[in-house]
Simulated scan of single mutants.
Amino acid sequence: MKNFDAWIGKTEVSHDFTHARPVAMMQALLNQTEKQLAELPHLYHWFYFLPIVNAEDLAEDGHPKKGGFLPPIPFPKRMWAGGRLQFLKPIAVNQNIRRESEITKIELKHGKSGDMYFVTVKHSIFAENELAIIEEHDIVYREASNQIAAKKPTAAPVVAKPYSYKKQSPVDTVTLFRYSALTFNGHKIHYDRPYATQKEGYPGLVVHGPLLATLLLHTFSQEHPEQEVANFEFRALSPVFDFNEFFIYGDVHSQNGELWIEKTDGQLAMQAKVTFK
């Protein structure tokens, strides 16, 4: 396997402005249009610093071609694997923001479904030159395989866990399309069913990992508006498809909480931890 260590330490700086429109669009997606916000809800910074790439510079999968800031790993499947975030100060709507990014780790791992590269990028996000968020973002690159479509994974038995709340947040193809449009995400696995099933071997359209993470924190904030989040970490465990039904759980205590998404067949899709200020 090719060594990509030369990309470790590579940096990039991006600038943006927290326009209110993406916030309002996400509120509409979540049926929250009646609320006018002065600050970005947690994870809404993902609607900024979006790469603007000409169509001729897109790969077959709809992503920007590899070899710019991120290493040109040849595996065709790219997805969010998880992340860790520290929320240091709020970011206001209509504010100048800057993101300083650095590739901190590239690891090759061998799994049951084949080889995988994990790339970790550290983002330091500044609002009016004050550090507001420190984020470590994990990206996974996987080999091409139709293993998921060929054999439906058997859900491992899940031991019943205590929870403070259990909510359902239906996601359909319109939700996937609107979120892709909001994030300028051209990845075809989220809206092009023939590509997702025939080219990448999925049984259906894939629900965005960052959308699931946002649903976790959004639901938590709806249930516990009195808590101020200091840290949030999440990890994707199995894909959620457009035909899946799932529940959002939270087991919340005085200083921290466990959050997770569980499909109705008992399979965990995402798990997360949150701590409070």
Rank of each mutant, 00 (worst) to 15 (best):
P153G: 04
S169W: 05
H110C: 01
M1D: 14
E223C: 14
K77Y: 04
M270C: 05
F4H: 06
I103P: 09
P203W: 00
T183L: 03
G209Q: 07
A269T: 08
H110L: 07
D192F: 05
K277L: 01
F220M: 14
K151Q: 11
P76A: 14
V240N: 05
P22T: 00
H110R: 04
I103M: 03
K10E: 09
E258L: 14
Q198P: 03
H190C: 00
D265R: 08
Y117D: 14
Q267S: 07
E200D: 12
L268R: 10
Y191A: 08
L108R: 13
M270T: 08
G67V: 11
N54K: 13
A181C: 13
V121S: 12
A150C: 09
E262R: 01
P41S: 09
L108N: 14
E100M: 07
E12P: 04
N31S: 08
I134E: 09
P162C: 14
I148S: 11
A92K: 11
T173M: 08
Y195I: 02
A24K: 08
G67C: 08
I189N: 02
F177R: 06
K151R: 15
E233N: 14
T120S: 15
T197E: 13
L58F: 11
A144N: 09
P51S: 06
V206T: 12
A150N: 15
L85V: 09
V13F: 09
N129C: 12
S14C: 06
N3K: 05
G266P: 01
P194I: 10
L29D: 04
F243D: 03
K105F: 02
A149Y: 07
R21C: 12
Q95N: 05
Q168R: 07
M116N: 09
F276R: 01
D61L: 06
A269R: 00
E226V: 03
P194D: 06
E100D: 04
M270Q: 08
G209A: 01
V240M: 00
G257Y: 03
L43C: 03
L37W: 11
L259C: 12
A196V: 04
N185G: 03
K89L: 02
Q32T: 15
A127G: 00
R142M: 01
Q32E: 15
D57H: 11
A28I: 13
V158S: 12
V252A: 01
F246Y: 10
P74W: 11
Y163L: 15
P22F: 01
E128C: 11
L176S: 05
H187I: 09
D242L: 03
R142Q: 07
A127Q: 00
V171H: 10
F4D: 13
A213C: 08
F243H: 12
D115A: 11
S164F: 12
S164R: 12
D138M: 04
Y191F: 13
D57A: 00
L29K: 11
I125V: 02
V23N: 13
Q32K: 15
I52S: 15
P203M: 10
I8Y: 14
Q227V: 14
M25F: 08
